[in-house]
């Protein structure tokens, strides 16, 4: 495990595509929308086994579970009556249909894997492109319903864990720096505060006038810059090492001993435990399992594992028990 693994959580690469000759989803009638879903499903069949979820007959909780796993967007869940998603068995590929665009091909991988993610999504795009006629223009590239995605239709995003920059209020400066590189930084669960686990999404703003590989290079450049800044900020936190140790040990104490934990508390203290891994205060045998724990603790995922009739209080009790059991099985406090 290297320092990058602690800072970089996952990589997501998506390509926006539309079918030529049909209006974009917000102007599309139900019949055409349903037809697109079927066509995409058929076109995907040779690639892998995909499970299909149509938004109009998905329960609210099952929909939220997919959204908490970042397999679908909140927009698809809330605002797209004819929306659908096709998800690969390993949950690394998600193809949203009739969201903002007819097709959003996405690959999600753990760690920093932009090249691999592009390679995989590109191959899926090749397969889809052979049976579906994509809307394309020689000047503007792939035509998308929003002009901000024209060109490659590509967004490369990296989810980063940036506690030191956030705690020391240095994150805004960092966001400005990468803004100059045409990148955007957003909190994954909102603003990226402590209760949201200090998680941020860094992604390219430009999709037109740059080749796919150049976009990836530019995102990698921005990531390197942010990693350096976060590492420096983590160094600064060491100036008061006793306090840092104390905060992290207290967080460990809470997540392994509390009887009840809300989602916010879980996010806040698990983030400190993850930071503890960086300093060697906590031994974590697998950071991907750690990240999965954070997804498991989101309300809808918790509800599913505990039974649909659970109250919010019962859920908090179950969450505390689940986290304590999981953490003590693959993590250890070493100070």
């Amino acid at each position: 495990m290297n320092v990058l693994d602690n800072i970089i959580v996952s990589t997501r690469l998506r390509l926006a595509r539309n079918i030529a000759g049909l209006p974009f989803p917000h102007k599309l009638n139900e019949m055409s929308a349903r037809k697109i879903i079927d066509n995409v499903q058929n076109a995907l069949a040779p690639v892998d086994k995909f499970s299909r979820y149509d938004m109009n007959n998905l329960s609210a909780i099952d929909g939220t579970i997919l959204q908490e796993k970042h397999l679908i967007s909140l927009d698809l869940l809330k605002d797209c009556p004819f929306g659908s998603v096709l998800i690969s068995a390993d949950e690394n590929v998600s193809v949203m249909v009739n969201e903002e665009d007819h097709i959003r091909e996405q690959v999600i991988l753990s760690g920093l894997s932009l090249d691999q993610a592009y390679d995989r999504v590109n191959r899926i795009d090749d397969v889809l492109g052979k049976s579906l006629n994509f809307a394309f223009d020689g000047r503007f590239g792939y035509l998308t319903s929003c002009a901000t995605n024209l060109g490659t239709g590509m967004r490369a995003s990296v989810m980063m864990f940036l506690p030191a920059l956030t705690i020391q209020k240095m994150i805004d400066g960092c966001i400005n720096d990468v803004g100059l590189l045409n990148m955007t930084v957003r909190g994954v669960y909102g603003e990226g505060s402590d209760a949201e686990g200090y998680l941020y999404q860094v992604s390219n703003q430009r999709s037109l006038g740059m080749k796919e590989t150049d976009i990836i290079d530019s995102v990698n450049g921005a990531i390197n810059h942010i990693v350096d800044a976060e590492l420096k900020a983590r160094q600064l936190l060491m100036r008061n090492e006793d306090r840092l140790k104390d905060e992290i040990c207290r967080a460990w104490g809470i997540v392994t001993n509390a009887y009840r934990l809300s989602t916010e508390e879980a996010m806040r203290y698990l983030a400190l435990v993850r930071l503890g891994q960086h300093y060697g205060y906590i031994d974590v045998s697998d950071l991907n399992v750690f990240q999965k724990l954070i997804t498991d603790c989101q309300p809808a995922n918790m509800q599913k594992s505990g039974g649909y009739s659970m109250s919010a209080d019962e859920r908090d009790v179950l969450r505390a028990r689940h986290i304590a059991t999981a953490l003590t099985s693959f993590c250890k406090k070493t100070v």
Partner: peptide, 27 residues
């Protein structure tokens, strides 16, 4: 995109610093 082409060009030039696609083309 054809009908609003001049407006599209205006906006993407500022937003994307380009108005010409150079990446992948469809099959």
């Amino acid at each position: 995109y054809k009908v609003f082409e001049p407006l599209v060009v205006q906006s993407v030039k500022k937003l994307q610093q380009s108005d010409r696609h150079v990446g992948k083309t469809p099959y």
